[in-house]
């Protein structure tokens, strides 16, 4: 029996080496070590031996098995490597040969700008408030210290709708009515921004649309001052436009703020050196701002001696156009996919 074991063990390496594929090797392995393999059969024959003989034979069998398995493992690894190599050699792909790349959609430029602005203001501790697009005269004008027949109403070309008494319900001309709603519905301290869609009776051209977007900010708290307004806008300016862009405030007039100011930033195209876009001034007019008018605070039931606040607002569409160099605002609103897909993020 020992002889048989020795013979099998000696013959095995040649048999294993003769296998030329993993499949062939599997067959050789079955012949040698499988359930009907020679070593297994010998093992079954050990029952006829005496205990000493069984021990010797068992030990020899185990040794033979170990050595065969070691040889098998080496050969298997070699064959597998070879097979992988030949498979890989036939599996070349040209990664520029693409069919049907999955498409990603795009957020509208207004949404992208909206989110970017809102994110900066959230970082500065502002909440985000919204309100209806169709408003009453009270929220859009009266409460904001713009009584009927006030010459300042000429600052907004208003679209009215056929509801209620004539010229009492309108498409909001600015996001400022949301300020009134925020102050009426809530309590100070208020730190809120109000992005939204607004309407003007305007014919569409390269820089105007009857429908566009604004974002306003409102702060009402104790001891809020013009200096807080200046500081807040400066912080926003550098956060949104970059650290090299600064803000300035110039006296202006709005019925709902006093003192009122124009909010300018360094021209983002020439960084303040003067170029065609900024008319050589180095500055871009961004929007308006000021201290909330005492009459507005009174209109919403806040005591102007106890509370003070500031508000600011500017157009959102223009920022979107500026960032991407779009020269005609109408392009944003046709729904032309050739436009939309240019701005995947």
């Amino acid at each position: 029996m020992i002889d048989d074991i020795t013979r099998i063990a000696a013959a095995a390496p040649a048999l294993i080496a003769g296998a030329n594929s993993v499949d062939e090797l599997r067959a050789v392995e079955a012949d040698l070590l499988g359930k009907k393999g020679e070593l297994t059969l010998l093992k079954k024959g050990m029952g006829g031996l005496d205990p000493e003989g069984r021990k010797v034979a068992g030990s020899a069998l185990n040794d033979a098995r170990d050595s065969i398995e070691a040889v098998l493992a080496v050969r298997r690894s070699d064959l597998e490597s070879a097979e992988r190599a030949s498979m890989v050699a036939t599996e070349q792909l040209d990664l520029t040969e693409l069919l049907g790349t999955p498409e990603r959609g795009s957020l509208h430029l207004v949404t992208q700008t909206w989110d970017r602005l809102v994110d900066v203001f959230i970082g500065m501790g502002f909440t985000v408030a919204e309100g209806p697009e169709v408003e009453t005269d009270w929220y859009n004008f009266e409460a904001l210290n713009i009584p009927a027949a006030h010459p300042a109403r000429g600052m907004w070309d208003t679209l009215y709708v056929d509801l209620g008494d004539p010229e009492t319900v309108l498409l909001r001309t600015h996001t400022s009515p949301v300020q009134i709603r925020v102050m009426t519905d809530g309590e100070p301290p208020i730190y809120a921004v109000m992005p939204g869609r607004v309407y003007r009776r305007d014919t569409a051209d390269a820089s105007h649309m009857p429908v566009f977007h604004q974002i306003e900010g409102l702060v009402v708290d104790r001891n809020i001052s013009f200096a807080d307004l200046a500081g807040t806008l400066e912080a926003f300016t550098s956060a949104y436009f970059g650290g090299s862009i600064h803000s300035r405030l110039r006296p202006s007039y709005f019925p709902f703020t006093e003192p009122s100011a124009e909010y300018d930033i360094n021209c983002v195209f020439c960084e303040g050196n003067g170029c065609r876009t900024c008319g050589q001034t180095g500055w871009l007019e961004l929007g308006g701002c000021g201290m909330v008018h005492p009459t507005v605070l009174s209109n919403v039931g806040l005591d102007p001696e106890e509370w003070s606040g500031f508000a600011f607002g500017f157009g959102l569409d223009r920022l979107a156009l500026m960032r991407h160099g779009v020269d005609d605002i109408r392009e944003m609103y046709t729904g032309d996919v050739r436009f939309l897909e240019q701005f995947p993020s």
Partner: peptide
């Protein structure tokens, strides 16, 4: 303010605690 000069009013940030978030 106009004659003092808006540009001479030094900006600062409101100091009260307030947090921002989306609804």
């Amino acid at each position: 303010a106009r004659h003092y000069g808006y540009s001479k009013i030094v900006g600062r940030a409101p100091t009260s605690a307030h947090t921002g978030s989306l609804t």
